[in-house]
Design a protein around this nucleic acid. Structure first.
Lengths: 218, 218
DNA sequence: CGCCGGATTGATCAGTTTCAAGGCATGTGG
DNA sequence: CCACATGCCTTGAAACTGATCAATCCGGCG
């Protein structure tokens, strides 16, 4: 039996500068980590969905902030405990490394996206990634605002809206958000979506194995 | 006594897709890691200078390529050996984690740069970083082409040239490259250079401790 | 019914890229 | 030892992509 903690939409889970006290797992809902510049610019670093682990940062203090995207339940373990165990237990240490490696791979990928891709490519990359991670045969349920996507892609919400329109006019994806709260999008033509990206830009992110997660959260 | 291997300017040390066979240390000279898209776009992921470690990637195959920027000497240890030792030796495992963490922190920083900063800010961030890492009281010796800087900053060489001109007109840095091969640049006003960046954008990257390096390369 | 949050669309503007033309050191051959 | 080619940087002008500003729309909700 584990405690879960619940957060409302846009509620802060931790903030840049906070001591790293826990490692978290999303039980349900979704989380974004982001970095805010004083003038209002935001960079979203990553999204996390049910089952995924976040908040394991290398330094003693968070460099990212984390916020709930929608009503979200999370559970957590003390970082201190993780550290202690990793000191003496190799499979624990291994788990910590695995998670750090996954974050690193994601960041590597992300900076090619930010540094080299144009907006259409970025948008395609985003949908492809979401489709891999949370798509149910082509249908992606996103509860985030367009602004979140924009800040993840290093662009603006208007531009994202326009490129979704474009992809949808090309018959590649289909907008489904009839409601303002629950946004559903269907990938009609994954092949074409993939073809928008430069061939070598790929990257299936390795997901963290169940074993690693169980070890950490046991 | 350790073997060192020597590479000429622009020579490839390893290539994306190669099996990860070694972990490397720069003995002298400098190295860039980069990712090429088929259409010629390049993203430089990082630069490495004397004493620094590179090539320790999470997956079995490299996702980056590495090239010598100038005439460069490196030494290396087998990745397999590192892996084996990390399996049984906690301080070894810790060393691997430390390096992965440093790369992660750098990548985090880099994607805020790529996602949110304009070109002047990016250039300032670059010089600040170089000044921290290889500056000798304000004087930075860079043997890389403008193109390398541009591809690191996610922009073009012309744009980099223009922003250096701008910084130099503002009296913040001074170009010194009389020669085409050895480029020296002096930071005249670090405070102003810092002031170009948004306040919270900071990030002193932790350097890898001597101990960790000795452990790995012993 | 009318307000509110958020998305879309349009028009304009700015920052960057692209294309093109020198310029300046270094290196090479006569 | 000079002349010319080469490699790389700088600068200029034109073209474009994406940002910004602004108006409108639409569904949910009080």
């Amino acid at each position: 039996m584990k405690f879960t903690y619940s957060f409302q939409r846009d509620e802060e889970i931790y903030r840049r500068g906070d001591a790293v006290a826990y490692v978290y797992q999303v039980v349900s809902g979704s989380v974004r980590i982001l970095s805010k510049l004083p003038d209002g610019r935001r960079q979203v670093g990553a999204f996390y969905f049910a089952g995924e682990i976040f908040g394991l940062e290398p330094e003693t203090h968070h460099v990212w902030s984390a916020e709930a995207i929608e009503t979200t339940a999370i559970c957590r373990v003390e970082r201190e405990k993780v550290n202690r165990k990793a000191q003496s237990n190799l499979s624990y240490a291994r788990g910590v490394l695995k998670i750090t490696e996954r974050d690193l791979l994601h960041a590597e990928d992300h900076r090619i996206l930010l540094g080299q891709l144009d907006v259409t490519e970025r948008t395609a990359a985003f949908f492809l990634q979401m489709n891999n991670r949370i798509g149910v045969n082509g249908t992606i349920e996103l509860n985030m605002r367009t602004e979140d996507i924009a800040d993840y892609l290093g662009t603006t919400l208007e531009t994202v809206s326009r490129s979704i329109t474009k992809l949808s006019q090309m018959g590649i994806v289909e907008r489904q958000w009839s409601s303002r709260i629950l946004r559903i999008l269907t990938v009609r033509n994954p092949r074409k979506l993939r073809a928008i990206l430069p061939p070598s830009y790929a990257l299936e992110l390795p997901s963290i194995s169940e074993t690693v997660i169980r070890t950490l959260f046991a």
